[in-house]
């Protein structure tokens, strides 16, 4: 593990977010930020997978759904408390991620993309069909989380809950990237053959990336279920998966903080335009287009420029050079 205590920039941002409920009283904004916190957990996991290990997942909403259903079913059917359910859903989803990671070892690029897309199509259909357990379309109403006798039933309290867990997970991700595992992942990303020559077990780290990514999505799923308070199979459809993908690309794949910016973007921007009649889809599409078009490295790129303008930044960031994140199209093909 890391020798020095490392406080990364995104953690500072998230700390700022702690003060938001003191300033803002409208609960829908708190709720939206709460959803952003959940999505950013997914985003961080997806960046570990896509940005670092270089494996794509187009069906990531399926992991969120699995986590949400495990947690909801455990609390509703067995009466388990929220906290163990959260842990179990994370572990359970991680196991599914592990199982998906195994065949993914043999797949690359577009083949992996379509295989994970297939996974994203299958999971909601199975959740729907397995009515005895999941209540199918009727959905489930998971209870609000509790800590001792305290119930997280206001938006602000749920927001703090999600935020704290998001901070812990972001922090964990940062420190993991500074460990041996992280360096191995980065080496893998840069050049897997060279990494192998250096004695890094490629297969092991690839599967590990899938497992960790699914673990993160599982935590997010559990938080989603108990925060939104209602889940049904098609809440976790391909559209959400595409949103997640857009989220990490917009945020920036080069560092896990991109997941946080991306989550804020995909949750808050559509909310701004929801009342413009007939137009919300188009406007969000145009925003997405402009961000990708003008900032190929995502919001992260802008943040970097800003910070280098202001002050040179303390602490070393275990970041991947932007160039190497998914081979640029210019570099010629095999």
């Amino acid at each position: 593990m890391a020798k020095k205590f490392y406080l990364p920039f995104p953690v500072i941002i998230v700390l700022c977010l702690f003060f938001v409920p003191l300033v803002i009283k409208q609960s829908f904004i708190i709720y939206l930020l709460s959803v952003s916190a959940i999505y950013s957990i997914v985003g961080v996991g997806l960046i570990l997978l896509l940005g670092y290990s270089g494996q794509i997942s187009i069906g990531h909403a399926a992991f969120l759904g699995i986590g949400a259903y495990i947690s909801a079913l455990l609390t509703i059917k067995t009466g388990l408390a929220f906290w163990p359910a959260l842990l179990l859903s994370a572990v359970g989803t991680g196991v599914v991620g592990f199982l998906i990671g195994l065949p993914a070892l043999r797949l690359h690029g577009h083949y992996l993309a379509i295989a994970t897309l297939g996974f994203g199509v299958i999971v909601p259909q199975i959740l729907l069909k397995w009515e005895k357990l999941t209540h199918g379309f009727k959905g489930l109403l998971p209870p609000k989380p509790k800590l001792g006798s305290y119930v997280f039933d206001t938006d602000a309290s749920l927001y703090y809950l999600n935020l704290v867990i998001a901070v812990i997970l972001v922090f964990m991700a940062y420190n993991m990237l500074r460990s041996k595992t992280g360096r191995a992942l980065i080496a893998l990303k840069d050049n897997d053959l060279a990494a192998q020559a250096m004695g890094i077990n490629i297969a092991r780290y690839r599967v590990m990336a899938f497992t960790i990514s699914a673990f993160y999505a599982g935590v997010a799923g559990s938080l989603y279920a108990h925060s939104v308070g209602f889940i049904s199979p098609y809440d976790f459809n391909l559209w959400l998966s595409f949103n997640f993908l857009a989220m990490v690309v917009i945020g920036g794949l080069a560092s896990i903080e991109g997941g946080i910016y991306g989550a804020l973007f995909v949750v808050l921007v559509p909310a701004l335009f929801g009342r413009i009649k007939d137009m919300p889809h188009i406007i969000f599409g145009v925003c997405l287009f402009l961000v990708i078009f003008l900032m190929p490295t995502g919001i992260l790129g802008i943040r970097k420029k800003l910070s280098s303008l202001l002050v040179s930044f303390g602490g070393k960031n275990p970041e991947v050079p932007v160039k190497t994140v998914l081979r640029g199209r210019e570099s010629g093909n095999e």
Binding site: S27, Y31, V228, D235, W239, L240, G274
Partner: peptide, 20 residues
């Protein structure tokens, strides 16, 4: 308001309309 048929969005819309 448009919720794109996504319950998570509906929740935000309803909260905004009720409280703001």
């Amino acid at each position: 308001e448009d919720d794109s048929y996504q319950p998570a969005k509906t929740v935000a819309i309803v909260k905004r309309m009720v409280e703001q």
